[in-house]
Amino acid sequence: MTRMVWRRMLSSLFVGACAIAVLVALVPLAFVLFFVLSRGVQALNLDFFTHMPLPVGESGGGMANSIVGTLILTGLAALMAVPVGVMSGVYLSEFPGSRFTSIVRFAADTLNGVPSIVIGVFAYGVAVLPFRQFSALAGGLALGIMMIPIIARTTEELLLLVPGALREGALALGATRARAVFTVIVPAALPGIITGIVLALARVAGETAPLLFTSFNNRFFTTELTQPISSVTVQVFTYAISPYEDWQRQAWAGALVLVTIVFICSLMARLATSRVADMRGR
């Protein structure tokens, strides 16, 4: 019976260890959120959103140009990635089983795993080097490439969730396949697809590495697409590794803005996916 006691103990120990693992992972999360929140709130004010960065020594200022920059960069990325991603997703879900589909699916997963810094190097090679000019366009390209596989795979998955009866209904009415897909199936999955796009946007909005040598940084306000442009992430990086306390404070404020965006998007996605799950359950 001592063996039984030992087995029971081992089992309880294992269960306990798993629970501890959860805590071990949540502690850093809590720490990160706590510091971002407490330090960020101290530094965050309206000026942060409306003012330009100030030179060293002057207190205050903001990241107005970086915020606009991030919006422009993610906008450019979406402009490029949404059509390619959604249409690829349609292709993947409509023509499963073909060799080309497997290749595309594999490529999407591969692209998803490519380090963002490598994508930055690629964008530098095709969009910066030939023009000898850092630009918002190059940054948008890098972020767009990162978004494409996420959108494609989300779209594919969500389209596959649409009940087959809907498609058959449309086809039975004499719709062509394209018509059935774009007037019935895609609209049915649209809320989910939009959620996927928002999540992908949130993810690339937090990217720094691919922007370092594509959109670079800019101390000034610009909306010029062929010029280097600032972004919140690169600006946070610049400030974070600077020796000036004022700048470091700004970095925390920037981090708070980034985390807030991510948090809201994740929450929205959670709510939306639970609705999709409901749909599936029914």
């Binding site: 949540l26 999360l29 510091f35 992430t233 990086f237 974070a240 991510v262």
Partner: peptide, 24 residues
């Protein structure tokens, strides 16, 4: 669901924010 959400959040926090937290 809450635990899944928290692990997702852990994955969603930008690298730069981890870096900032790391430095300080």
């Amino acid at each position: 669901t809450p635990l899944v959400f928290l692990t997702e959040l852990l994955a969603a926090i930008p690298s730069i924010v981890y870096g900032l937290w790391g430095i300080f």
